[in-house]
Write a protein that binds this DNA or RNA. Structure first.
Lengths: 255, 255
DNA sequence: GAGTGGTCTAGACCACCAC
DNA sequence: TGGTGGTCTAGACCACTCA
């Protein structure tokens, strides 16, 4: 059975067989989780990693291939392999699938409505795997589409974060931040959103939500409940978005 | 510049460089499109394909890897590589992302409402890339969830197909068919749905749709507009589904 | 045991990028 | 010009399936 030299993996038992490249993948993820390489930075070259792990370049390559397929790493020919980030222009709103019915990616402005610390409600605590009564941060904000010289609200976001991970997060901090929220989370709180699961529903707008989104009460809205995960499949954000889909839609690709 | 022996690719010009495995991938897709291998059947082994194309097994392997990643082929260790199909239990409703709020995949019944041939409406013709005035088949049907001894309508589908590809399609044919519609398309019309693009919106139920879905008029419904493609990126189905998301949701994964 | 896909290696060469 | 990832090869061995 193949095995990596460091850091001395135990004689695997459960999965009757664990390919070398999977072990390398785990080691790379451990390095990412531990902050050995920061978002946007390059990881060591394939050759160097191969030497460090005492395997062939092809084996490292296969591990990196999988991580690149999961959008955890980004390959750039001739330059190196980089840790994925929510900072780059192309992936600013990597998890936002909302598109204008006509035209390219939307130009969005942010408006913060609320940011407060509280005990996590039961349902939130359950989904974020918090102990009952543990602290959470709730954020409420609007996204507005700039179109034809007018500003139309299109998304009302309501999100909860584990208080223990987001200690210094405040309304002031959010207000001052220029850029995507996930970039703030990366830069200031070392929390990287890797993947997410969403549940979509059509709902009728309540009075308050309707007013904020400038639609009549009872108007149909797209409800998007998102649970975001960081390394090691740890849930770190619960978000409920209400999308006004009058002039926008949620885009998805199937295969 | 590497090049495959058959069928004598022209001295590529446009893309300054085309990897061998991409050429192999194209050849495999051509075989699939031409019906050389049927859905559910095995394609030749990697070794045999390597010999046929005069390349190494690793190169064939990489081509197949990509096609498997796109769900065009399915690898089964020890058995072979198979053409993807909508027939298997596990992938019966491969493109349907609707899930019950509680419990596993939904048990669905079908009820055909309508099936007629007509001239394609302008918008349908545009999306399906049909000539104006060309024939189309329209199908309307309900999907009902069997839950707790009752049958609740959850999806109202409205779909259009190119008349030229679906010549013998009729209400009788659809009624008699036991199984997923896409399986019928594969088996009887040799049309394989490979991938699809969806646009989701929240809409208010019209009177007729509300009655069919057993909700009040104006109730919020999830509108799912799907354009399905076959080999060669040819659009072959336009489908508009209205999902009743009272006890179900549309599930999506982001990364 | 024969055949399939899955893993791993070592080495050559190519394309892209930066200096 | 040197370093990076990208392609391709040839061969060895392993895991899984089925007869």
């Amino acid at each position: 059975m193949p095995s990596v030299a460091l850091p001395a993996a135990p004689p695997e038992a459960a999965p009757s067989f664990s390919p070398l490249y999977q072990q390398i993948k785990t080691l790379l993820l451990r390095g990412l989780q531990g902050g050995e390489w920061q978002p946007g930075q390059a990881i060591p070259s394939e050759t160097e990693l191969a030497a460090r792990f005492r395997v062939s370049q092809g084996t490292v390559r296969k591990a990196i291939d999988e991580l690149a397929g999961e959008n955890v790493l980004v390959r750039r020919q001739g330059k190196g392999t980089f840790v994925a980030t929510h900072a780059e222009q192309a992936t600013q709103y990597r998890f936002l699938r909302l598109m204008p019915d006509a035209g390219g990616p939307p130009a969005l402005q942010r408006r913060l409505l609320e940011c407060r610390r509280m005990r996590a409600p039961l349902e939130v605590a359950r989904l974020l795997a918090l102990k009952s009564g543990e602290a959470a941060v709730q954020v409420r904000r609007l996204l507005l589409a700039a179109e034809a010289a007018t500003l139309r609200p299109v998304v009302l976001d309501d999100l909860w974060l584990p208080g223990s991970l987001f200690k210094g997060l405040s309304a002031e901090r959010l207000q001052a931040w220029r850029g995507p929220m996930y970039r703030l989370f990366e830069a200031e709180f070392a929390v990287q959103m890797i993947r997410a699961e969403e549940k979509l529903r059509a709902v009728a707008a309540g009075a308050e939500d309707a007013a904020l989104l400038e639609v009549p009460p009872g108007a149909p809205l797209l409800s998007v409940e998102r649970l975001s995960y960081t390394y090691g499949d740890r849930p770190v954000e619960l978000r409920r978005g209400l999308y006004q889909t009058g002039a926008h839609h949620y885009r998805n690709e199937l295969s």
